[in-house]
Design a protein around this nucleic acid. Sequence first.
RNA 1: GGGCAGAUACCCAAGUGGCCAACGGGGGCUGACUGUAAAUCAGCUGGCUUCGCCUUCGGGAGUUCGAAUCUCUCUCUGCCCA
Length: 394
Amino acid sequence: MDPIATVLSRATVDVVVREELETRMRRGDKLRVKFGVDPTSPALHLGHAVVLRKLRAFQDLGHTICLVIGDFTAQIGDASDKTSMRQMLSEEEVYQNLANYKKQISKIIDESKVEWSYNADWLGPLRFKDIVGLAANFTVAQMLERENFTNRFSAGQPIGLHEFLYPLMQGYDSVALRSDVEVGGTEQLFNLLAGRTLQRAFGQQPQSVMTVELLLGLDGRKMSKSYGNAISLDDPPKDMYGKVMSFPDDQIIPCFELCTDIPLEEIDAIAAELETGTNPMVYKKRLAFEITKLYHGAAQAQRAQEAFEREVQRKERPVDIPDVMLDRPGEWPIADVLVLAGLTKSKSEARQKVLEGAVYVDDVRISDPKHLLVVRNGMVIKLGRHYRRVTLPT
RNA sequence: GGGCAGAUACCCAAGUGGCCAACGGGGGCUGACUGUAAAUCAGCUGGCUUCGCCUUCGGGAGUUCGAAUCUCUCUCUGCCCA
Protein backbone atom coordinates (compact mmCIF):
# COMPACT_ATOMS: atom_id res chain seq x y z
CA MET A 1 0.00 0.00 0.00
CA ASP A 2 1.43 3.40 -0.90
CA PRO A 3 1.93 6.03 1.82
CA ILE A 4 -0.97 8.23 0.78
CA ALA A 5 -3.43 5.37 0.71
CA THR A 6 -2.16 4.27 4.11
CA VAL A 7 -2.66 7.69 5.64
CA LEU A 8 -6.17 7.74 4.24
CA SER A 9 -7.15 4.34 5.53
CA ARG A 10 -5.10 3.00 8.43
CA ALA A 11 -6.86 3.51 11.76
CA THR A 12 -9.31 5.93 10.15
CA VAL A 13 -13.09 5.87 10.28
CA ASP A 14 -14.39 8.77 8.23
CA VAL A 15 -12.75 10.93 5.59
CA VAL A 16 -14.92 13.82 4.41
CA VAL A 17 -14.60 14.19 1.46
CA ARG A 18 -12.21 11.38 0.62
CA GLU A 19 -11.85 11.91 -3.13
CA GLU A 20 -11.27 15.61 -2.61
CA LEU A 21 -8.54 15.04 -0.05
CA GLU A 22 -6.90 12.28 -2.02
CA THR A 23 -6.80 14.43 -5.13
CA ARG A 24 -5.10 17.26 -3.30
CA MET A 25 -2.59 14.92 -1.72
CA ARG A 26 -1.79 13.15 -4.99
CA ARG A 27 -1.18 16.33 -6.91
CA GLY A 28 1.28 17.39 -4.20
CA ASP A 29 -0.55 20.25 -2.45
CA LYS A 30 1.14 21.25 0.76
CA LEU A 31 -1.71 21.00 3.23
CA ARG A 32 -2.27 22.66 6.58
CA VAL A 33 -3.34 19.93 8.96
CA LYS A 34 -5.03 21.23 12.08
CA PHE A 35 -5.40 19.60 15.45
CA GLY A 36 -6.79 21.11 18.64
CA VAL A 37 -4.91 20.68 21.89
CA ASP A 38 -6.64 20.88 25.22
CA PRO A 39 -4.26 22.50 27.71
CA THR A 40 -6.31 21.28 30.69
CA SER A 41 -5.12 17.70 30.53
CA PRO A 42 -1.43 17.36 29.85
CA ALA A 43 -1.36 13.62 30.54
CA LEU A 44 -1.54 11.95 27.17
CA HIS A 45 -2.34 8.29 26.68
CA LEU A 46 -2.28 5.78 23.86
CA GLY A 47 -5.71 6.92 22.72
CA HIS A 48 -4.37 10.40 22.03
CA ALA A 49 -1.40 8.82 20.35
CA VAL A 50 -3.59 7.41 17.59
CA VAL A 51 -4.40 10.92 16.38
CA LEU A 52 -0.89 12.19 16.95
CA ARG A 53 0.52 9.31 14.96
CA LYS A 54 -1.83 10.23 12.16
CA LEU A 55 -0.50 13.77 12.27
CA ARG A 56 2.99 12.36 12.15
CA ALA A 57 2.06 10.48 9.00
CA PHE A 58 0.93 13.75 7.39
CA GLN A 59 4.10 15.41 8.54
CA ASP A 60 6.18 12.67 6.95
CA LEU A 61 4.45 13.42 3.66
CA GLY A 62 5.57 17.03 3.89
CA HIS A 63 2.39 18.67 5.15
CA THR A 64 2.30 21.32 7.85
CA ILE A 65 0.92 20.46 11.26
CA CYS A 66 -0.96 23.33 12.91
CA LEU A 67 -1.59 22.76 16.58
CA VAL A 68 -4.16 25.03 18.17
CA ILE A 69 -3.90 25.45 21.90
CA GLY A 70 -7.38 25.85 23.28
CA ASP A 71 -6.47 28.42 25.89
CA PHE A 72 -9.72 30.26 25.32
CA THR A 73 -11.73 27.08 25.65
CA ALA A 74 -9.77 26.07 28.73
CA GLN A 75 -10.65 29.27 30.49
CA ILE A 76 -14.30 28.46 30.12
CA GLY A 77 -13.85 24.87 31.19
CA ASP A 78 -14.56 21.59 29.58
CA ALA A 79 -18.30 21.14 29.56
CA SER A 80 -18.20 17.39 29.40
CA ASP A 81 -16.69 17.26 32.86
CA LYS A 82 -19.06 18.87 35.30
CA THR A 83 -16.56 19.18 38.09
CA SER A 84 -14.37 21.42 36.03
CA MET A 85 -17.12 23.52 34.51
CA ARG A 86 -16.22 26.60 36.44
CA GLN A 87 -12.57 25.86 36.74
CA MET A 88 -10.46 28.60 35.25
CA LEU A 89 -6.94 27.88 34.22
CA SER A 90 -4.42 30.56 34.93
CA GLU A 91 -2.01 31.58 32.23
CA GLU A 92 0.81 29.89 34.14
CA GLU A 93 -1.09 26.64 34.30
CA VAL A 94 -1.71 26.74 30.58
CA TYR A 95 2.01 27.28 29.95
CA GLN A 96 2.96 24.60 32.43
CA ASN A 97 0.61 22.09 30.83
CA LEU A 98 1.81 23.11 27.43
CA ALA A 99 5.43 22.43 28.33
CA ASN A 100 4.44 18.93 29.45
CA TYR A 101 2.42 18.50 26.34
CA LYS A 102 5.27 19.44 24.05
CA LYS A 103 7.55 17.03 25.82
CA GLN A 104 5.07 14.22 25.33
CA ILE A 105 4.15 14.85 21.72
CA SER A 106 7.78 15.18 20.74
CA LYS A 107 7.93 11.42 21.23
CA ILE A 108 5.59 11.14 18.27
CA ILE A 109 5.81 14.16 15.99
CA ASP A 110 8.59 16.52 15.07
CA GLU A 111 7.69 19.33 17.37
CA SER A 112 10.18 21.77 15.86
CA LYS A 113 8.28 21.83 12.58
CA VAL A 114 4.90 22.41 14.17
CA GLU A 115 3.04 25.68 13.75
CA TRP A 116 1.60 26.60 17.13
CA SER A 117 -1.20 29.06 17.83
CA TYR A 118 -3.52 30.09 20.63
CA ASN A 119 -7.21 30.33 19.93
CA ALA A 120 -7.74 33.11 22.46
CA ASP A 121 -5.98 35.29 19.89
CA TRP A 122 -8.97 35.24 17.59
CA LEU A 123 -11.81 33.99 19.80
CA GLY A 124 -11.15 36.61 22.48
CA PRO A 125 -11.75 39.67 20.26
CA LEU A 126 -15.03 38.36 18.81
CA ARG A 127 -18.00 40.58 19.56
CA PHE A 128 -21.42 39.37 20.52
CA LYS A 129 -22.64 40.25 17.05
CA ASP A 130 -19.98 38.01 15.54
CA ILE A 131 -20.95 35.14 17.78
CA VAL A 132 -24.60 35.46 16.87
CA GLY A 133 -23.51 35.43 13.24
CA LEU A 134 -21.62 32.20 13.76
CA ALA A 135 -24.53 30.64 15.64
CA ALA A 136 -26.91 31.44 12.79
CA ASN A 137 -25.16 28.80 10.70
CA PHE A 138 -26.56 26.03 12.87
CA THR A 139 -29.93 24.89 14.11
CA VAL A 140 -30.91 23.47 17.46
CA ALA A 141 -32.01 20.26 15.78
CA GLN A 142 -28.53 19.88 14.30
CA MET A 143 -27.03 20.31 17.73
CA LEU A 144 -29.38 17.81 19.30
CA GLU A 145 -28.62 15.35 16.52
CA ARG A 146 -25.32 14.72 18.15
CA GLU A 147 -25.46 11.40 19.87
CA ASN A 148 -23.76 12.82 22.89
CA PHE A 149 -26.35 15.53 23.38
CA THR A 150 -29.30 13.34 22.52
CA ASN A 151 -28.26 10.78 25.08
CA ARG A 152 -27.71 13.30 27.78
CA PHE A 153 -30.92 15.11 26.95
CA SER A 154 -33.11 12.01 27.07
CA ALA A 155 -31.30 10.78 30.16
CA GLY A 156 -32.23 14.02 31.86
CA GLN A 157 -28.61 15.10 32.16
CA PRO A 158 -27.89 18.81 32.13
CA ILE A 159 -26.59 20.39 28.95
CA GLY A 160 -25.13 23.84 29.37
CA LEU A 161 -26.12 26.32 26.69
CA HIS A 162 -22.48 27.22 26.24
CA GLU A 163 -21.83 23.63 25.23
CA PHE A 164 -23.61 24.43 21.99
CA LEU A 165 -20.97 27.06 21.41
CA TYR A 166 -18.06 24.65 21.50
CA PRO A 167 -18.47 23.46 17.93
CA LEU A 168 -18.64 27.11 16.86
CA MET A 169 -15.40 27.94 18.57
CA GLN A 170 -13.64 24.92 17.20
CA GLY A 171 -15.05 25.57 13.77
CA TYR A 172 -13.97 29.18 13.86
CA ASP A 173 -10.45 28.03 14.66
CA SER A 174 -10.43 26.41 11.25
CA VAL A 175 -11.48 29.69 9.66
CA ALA A 176 -8.75 31.60 11.48
CA LEU A 177 -6.11 29.06 10.53
CA ARG A 178 -7.35 28.48 6.99
CA SER A 179 -6.86 24.78 7.62
CA ASP A 180 -7.07 22.22 4.83
CA VAL A 181 -7.50 19.15 6.96
CA GLU A 182 -8.58 18.57 10.51
CA VAL A 183 -8.06 15.33 12.37
CA GLY A 184 -9.81 14.10 15.49
CA GLY A 185 -11.40 11.17 17.27
CA THR A 186 -14.73 9.83 16.04
CA GLU A 187 -16.56 11.69 18.80
CA GLN A 188 -15.20 14.89 17.27
CA LEU A 189 -16.92 14.42 13.91
CA PHE A 190 -19.58 17.02 14.57
CA ASN A 191 -17.11 19.64 15.73
CA LEU A 192 -14.87 18.94 12.77
CA LEU A 193 -17.75 19.32 10.35
CA ALA A 194 -18.68 22.61 12.00
CA GLY A 195 -15.34 23.84 10.69
CA ARG A 196 -16.45 23.07 7.14
CA THR A 197 -19.72 24.89 7.62
CA LEU A 198 -18.07 28.01 8.96
CA GLN A 199 -15.24 28.05 6.46
CA ARG A 200 -17.83 27.89 3.69
CA ALA A 201 -19.71 30.77 5.34
CA PHE A 202 -16.49 32.77 5.29
CA GLY A 203 -15.86 32.02 1.64
CA GLN A 204 -13.02 29.60 2.26
CA GLN A 205 -12.56 26.17 0.79
CA PRO A 206 -13.93 23.81 3.46
CA GLN A 207 -11.35 21.67 5.19
CA SER A 208 -11.26 17.92 4.78
CA VAL A 209 -12.14 16.05 7.90
CA MET A 210 -10.64 12.83 9.13
CA THR A 211 -11.61 10.83 12.17
CA VAL A 212 -9.48 8.09 13.63
CA GLU A 213 -10.54 4.90 15.38
CA LEU A 214 -11.27 5.11 19.04
CA LEU A 215 -8.83 3.09 21.06
CA LEU A 216 -10.52 1.04 23.75
CA GLY A 217 -9.10 0.94 27.23
CA LEU A 218 -8.16 -2.01 29.40
CA ASP A 219 -11.78 -2.63 30.29
CA GLY A 220 -13.20 -2.38 26.78
CA ARG A 221 -14.60 1.10 27.26
CA LYS A 222 -13.16 4.13 25.51
CA MET A 223 -9.67 4.81 26.75
CA SER A 224 -9.88 7.76 29.06
CA LYS A 225 -7.94 8.96 32.03
CA SER A 226 -11.12 9.46 34.02
CA TYR A 227 -12.13 5.83 33.53
CA GLY A 228 -8.76 4.78 34.88
CA ASN A 229 -8.30 2.40 31.96
CA ALA A 230 -5.64 4.30 30.08
CA ILE A 231 -2.04 3.61 29.21
CA SER A 232 -0.25 6.90 29.65
CA LEU A 233 2.60 7.86 27.38
CA ASP A 234 4.46 8.71 30.56
CA ASP A 235 3.99 5.27 32.07
CA PRO A 236 7.28 3.65 32.99
CA PRO A 237 8.25 0.85 30.57
CA LYS A 238 7.29 -1.91 32.97
CA ASP A 239 3.81 -0.49 33.56
CA MET A 240 3.26 0.19 29.90
CA TYR A 241 4.21 -3.35 28.98
CA GLY A 242 2.12 -4.86 31.76
CA LYS A 243 -0.94 -2.81 30.95
CA VAL A 244 -0.84 -3.86 27.32
CA MET A 245 -0.69 -7.46 28.51
CA SER A 246 -3.93 -6.95 30.38
CA PHE A 247 -5.76 -5.88 27.24
CA PRO A 248 -8.59 -8.24 26.35
CA ASP A 249 -7.43 -10.74 23.73
CA ASP A 250 -9.82 -9.51 21.06
CA GLN A 251 -8.18 -6.10 21.06
CA ILE A 252 -4.79 -7.39 20.03
CA ILE A 253 -5.35 -6.93 16.30
CA PRO A 254 -7.03 -3.48 16.46
CA CYS A 255 -4.32 -2.32 18.79
CA PHE A 256 -1.60 -3.44 16.39
CA GLU A 257 -3.22 -1.32 13.72
CA LEU A 258 -3.80 1.75 15.87
CA CYS A 259 -0.72 1.83 18.03
CA THR A 260 2.19 0.38 16.11
CA ASP A 261 3.99 0.80 12.81
CA ILE A 262 3.79 -2.87 11.94
CA PRO A 263 2.67 -3.05 8.28
CA LEU A 264 -0.95 -3.99 7.73
CA GLU A 265 0.07 -7.06 5.72
CA GLU A 266 1.95 -8.39 8.71
CA ILE A 267 -0.96 -7.66 11.03
CA ASP A 268 -3.23 -9.64 8.72
CA ALA A 269 -0.80 -12.51 8.96
CA ILE A 270 -0.92 -12.36 12.75
CA ALA A 271 -4.72 -12.29 12.67
CA ALA A 272 -4.72 -15.37 10.47
CA GLU A 273 -2.30 -17.07 12.83
CA LEU A 274 -4.54 -16.30 15.82
CA GLU A 275 -7.47 -17.86 13.96
CA THR A 276 -5.64 -21.17 13.97
CA GLY A 277 -5.63 -21.21 17.73
CA THR A 278 -2.15 -19.98 18.52
CA ASN A 279 -1.84 -18.74 22.08
CA PRO A 280 -2.73 -15.02 21.94
CA MET A 281 -0.22 -14.34 24.68
CA VAL A 282 2.62 -14.72 22.22
CA TYR A 283 1.29 -11.91 20.03
CA LYS A 284 0.21 -9.80 22.96
CA LYS A 285 3.78 -9.90 24.16
CA ARG A 286 4.91 -8.76 20.72
CA LEU A 287 2.35 -5.95 20.87
CA ALA A 288 3.42 -4.91 24.35
CA PHE A 289 7.04 -4.92 23.23
CA GLU A 290 6.38 -2.84 20.10
CA ILE A 291 4.38 -0.24 21.97
CA THR A 292 6.87 0.05 24.80
CA LYS A 293 9.65 0.34 22.23
CA LEU A 294 7.94 3.27 20.52
CA TYR A 295 7.95 5.36 23.69
CA HIS A 296 10.94 4.09 25.62
CA GLY A 297 13.28 2.48 23.08
CA ALA A 298 14.16 -1.11 22.41
CA ALA A 299 16.47 -1.58 25.38
CA GLN A 300 13.86 -0.48 27.91
CA ALA A 301 11.21 -2.54 26.17
CA GLN A 302 13.45 -5.57 26.42
CA ARG A 303 13.91 -5.01 30.14
CA ALA A 304 10.18 -4.54 30.63
CA GLN A 305 9.56 -7.81 28.84
CA GLU A 306 12.09 -9.63 31.00
CA ALA A 307 10.52 -8.15 34.14
CA PHE A 308 7.11 -9.34 32.99
CA GLU A 309 8.38 -12.82 32.32
CA ARG A 310 10.03 -12.96 35.70
CA GLU A 311 7.39 -11.36 37.90
CA VAL A 312 4.16 -12.31 36.24
CA GLN A 313 4.83 -15.47 34.30
CA ARG A 314 7.27 -17.10 36.71
CA LYS A 315 5.98 -15.24 39.77
CA GLU A 316 9.45 -14.41 40.99
CA ARG A 317 10.44 -11.36 42.96
CA PRO A 318 11.08 -8.19 41.03
CA VAL A 319 14.66 -6.94 40.88
CA ASP A 320 13.87 -3.48 42.20
CA ILE A 321 11.67 -3.46 45.27
CA PRO A 322 10.62 -0.12 46.78
CA ASP A 323 11.68 0.49 50.37
CA VAL A 324 9.51 1.07 53.38
CA MET A 325 11.26 3.04 56.09
CA LEU A 326 10.56 2.04 59.68
CA ASP A 327 11.90 4.30 62.39
CA ARG A 328 12.80 1.65 64.94
CA PRO A 329 13.60 -2.06 65.15
CA GLY A 330 11.54 -4.46 67.26
CA GLU A 331 7.95 -5.63 67.04
CA TRP A 332 5.39 -4.01 64.75
CA PRO A 333 1.74 -4.93 64.29
CA ILE A 334 1.53 -6.31 60.75
CA ALA A 335 -1.37 -3.98 59.95
CA ASP A 336 0.69 -0.90 60.82
CA VAL A 337 3.52 -2.02 58.58
CA LEU A 338 1.20 -2.62 55.65
CA VAL A 339 -0.27 0.86 55.99
CA LEU A 340 3.14 2.50 56.35
CA ALA A 341 4.32 0.63 53.29
CA GLY A 342 1.40 2.05 51.35
CA LEU A 343 0.16 -1.42 50.55
CA THR A 344 -3.22 -0.79 52.16
CA LYS A 345 -5.17 2.39 52.79
CA SER A 346 -6.23 1.54 56.34
CA LYS A 347 -5.60 -0.93 59.10
CA SER A 348 -9.03 -2.41 58.54
CA GLU A 349 -8.11 -3.15 54.97
CA ALA A 350 -4.76 -4.53 56.13
CA ARG A 351 -6.47 -6.98 58.48
CA GLN A 352 -8.80 -7.98 55.71
CA LYS A 353 -5.94 -8.67 53.33
CA VAL A 354 -4.16 -10.79 55.95
CA LEU A 355 -7.33 -12.83 56.43
CA GLU A 356 -7.55 -13.27 52.66
CA GLY A 357 -4.09 -14.81 52.68
CA ALA A 358 -2.63 -12.06 50.56
CA VAL A 359 0.24 -11.11 52.84
CA TYR A 360 3.66 -12.72 52.84
CA VAL A 361 6.76 -11.79 54.79
CA ASP A 362 9.95 -13.29 53.37
CA ASP A 363 7.81 -15.79 51.45
CA VAL A 364 5.95 -16.95 54.57
CA ARG A 365 2.22 -16.33 54.53
CA ILE A 366 0.91 -14.36 57.50
CA SER A 367 -2.56 -15.46 58.52
CA ASP A 368 -3.08 -13.77 61.89
CA PRO A 369 -4.25 -10.17 61.51
CA LYS A 370 -2.85 -9.39 64.96
CA HIS A 371 0.55 -10.81 64.07
CA LEU A 372 3.48 -8.92 65.60
CA LEU A 373 6.26 -8.67 63.10
CA VAL A 374 9.84 -8.61 64.35
CA VAL A 375 11.28 -6.38 61.68
CA ARG A 376 14.67 -6.84 60.12
CA ASN A 377 16.58 -4.79 57.61
CA GLY A 378 15.97 -6.16 54.14
CA MET A 379 12.84 -8.08 55.09
CA VAL A 380 10.53 -8.42 52.08
CA ILE A 381 6.82 -7.85 52.51
CA LYS A 382 4.44 -8.89 49.77
CA LEU A 383 0.76 -8.13 49.28
CA GLY A 384 -0.62 -9.54 46.08
CA ARG A 385 1.80 -8.49 43.39
CA HIS A 386 3.21 -5.56 45.36
CA TYR A 387 6.49 -5.83 47.22
CA ARG A 388 8.23 -3.66 49.82
CA ARG A 389 11.65 -4.03 51.37
CA VAL A 390 12.02 -2.99 55.02
CA THR A 391 14.76 -0.54 55.85
CA LEU A 392 15.67 0.41 59.39
CA PRO A 393 17.68 3.36 60.69
CA THR A 394 21.36 2.52 61.02
C1' G B 1 -41.92 33.73 37.02
C1' G B 2 -45.25 29.22 38.40
C1' G B 3 -45.98 23.83 39.25
C1' C B 4 -43.78 18.96 39.94
C1' A B 5 -39.76 15.48 40.77
C1' G B 6 -35.02 14.38 42.59
C1' A B 7 -29.95 14.71 45.47
C1' U B 8 -27.71 7.67 48.92
C1' A B 9 -20.75 5.06 49.58
C1' C B 10 -15.43 5.55 43.71
C1' C B 11 -19.75 5.29 39.68
C1' C B 12 -24.87 3.57 38.70
C1' A B 13 -28.72 2.36 41.84
C1' A B 14 -32.27 -0.04 46.01
C1' G B 15 -34.03 1.44 50.63
C1' U B 16 -39.65 5.76 52.69
C1' G B 17 -39.32 5.46 61.21
C1' G B 18 -36.09 0.59 64.45
C1' C B 19 -34.10 -6.08 61.48
C1' C B 20 -29.19 -0.19 57.86
C1' A B 21 -22.48 0.48 57.76
C1' A B 22 -27.19 0.54 54.19
C1' C B 23 -29.96 -4.83 48.59
C1' G B 24 -28.04 -5.21 43.55
C1' G B 25 -24.73 -3.90 39.36
C1' G B 26 -20.07 -1.72 37.72
C1' G B 27 -15.22 -0.60 39.14
C1' G B 28 -11.24 -1.75 42.51
C1' C B 29 -8.40 -5.20 45.68
C1' U B 30 -7.29 -10.30 47.05
C1' G B 31 -7.47 -15.71 46.55
C1' A B 32 -7.91 -20.11 43.33
C1' C B 33 -7.03 -21.54 38.54
C1' U B 34 -4.49 -20.43 33.90
C1' G B 35 -2.30 -19.24 28.34
C1' U B 36 -0.98 -13.16 30.75
C1' A B 37 -1.71 -8.52 34.95
C1' A B 38 -6.81 -12.17 29.59
C1' A B 39 -11.08 -15.38 30.64
C1' U B 40 -13.58 -18.07 34.63
C1' C B 41 -14.94 -18.98 39.79
C1' A B 42 -14.81 -17.22 45.03
C1' G B 43 -14.08 -13.54 48.98
C1' C B 44 -13.55 -8.48 50.38
C1' U B 45 -14.55 -3.25 49.38
C1' G B 46 -16.27 3.56 55.84
C1' G B 47 -12.89 3.79 60.18
C1' C B 48 -10.94 2.03 64.90
C1' U B 49 -7.84 0.22 70.60
C1' U B 50 -12.69 -5.04 65.94
C1' C B 51 -16.90 -10.75 69.80
C1' G B 52 -17.49 -4.03 70.70
C1' C B 53 -17.33 1.09 69.42
C1' C B 54 -17.26 5.57 66.23
C1' U B 55 -18.49 8.55 61.71
C1' U B 56 -21.68 8.25 56.98
C1' C B 57 -27.14 8.61 52.98
C1' G B 58 -26.57 17.12 49.27
C1' G B 59 -25.86 21.46 53.68
C1' G B 60 -28.24 23.34 58.18
C1' A B 61 -32.14 23.20 61.89
C1' G B 62 -36.16 20.29 64.08
C1' U B 63 -39.89 16.07 65.49
C1' U B 64 -39.03 11.20 67.91
C1' C B 65 -36.94 6.64 72.90
C1' G B 66 -35.04 5.98 67.79
C1' A B 67 -34.31 9.06 61.03
C1' A B 68 -31.14 7.66 54.87
C1' U B 69 -36.42 7.40 55.78
C1' C B 70 -41.06 12.59 58.84
C1' U B 71 -41.05 18.46 59.10
C1' C B 72 -38.79 23.26 57.93
C1' U B 73 -35.07 25.76 55.39
C1' C B 74 -30.83 26.39 52.14
C1' U B 75 -27.94 24.75 47.84
C1' C B 76 -27.88 22.09 43.28
C1' U B 77 -30.27 19.32 39.15
C1' G B 78 -34.17 17.51 35.83
C1' C B 79 -39.22 17.82 33.82
C1' C B 80 -43.71 20.61 32.59
C1' C B 81 -46.16 25.47 31.93
C1' A B 82 -45.01 30.68 30.57
